[in-house]
Amino acid sequence: MILLSRSEEIILLAIWKLKDNAYGVTIREQVSNDTGHDWTFGAIYKPLKQLYSKGFVVKTMSEPFSERGGRSKFLYNITAKGEKALKQIKKINESVWTKESRLAFD
């Protein structure tokens, strides 16, 4: 079983949703939209690094952009391992929740 921290999971999902356009700025926007909180860049990079070192995402460099002051983007793409992890988490979540059907919040 693969375990991810909550923030890693949310970011990985964001990368998966963003498909080919996942880099710092878009990831932060996506995550902020998903959770309804304003995430700082600092809060994004650390889990991103973890995801990268665990092999759930790959990193490629784009051509430089002038609006980034001539810097390239680091584009993140989800790997097969990453997708598998997401599916697994979803399955675990569902099975945990169905077993506890009495619980209703609203």
């Binding site: 880099y23 710092g24 860049f41 990079y45 952009f65 609006e67 980034r68 002051g69 390239s72």
Partner: peptide, 16 residues
């Protein structure tokens, strides 16, 4: 490397 990425991201949002 982290600084490269970070400053790029920050600058992009800053400009917009």
């Amino acid at each position: 490397e982290d600084f490269y990425q970070c400053s790029g991201d920050l600058e992009e949002v800053y400009r917009s």
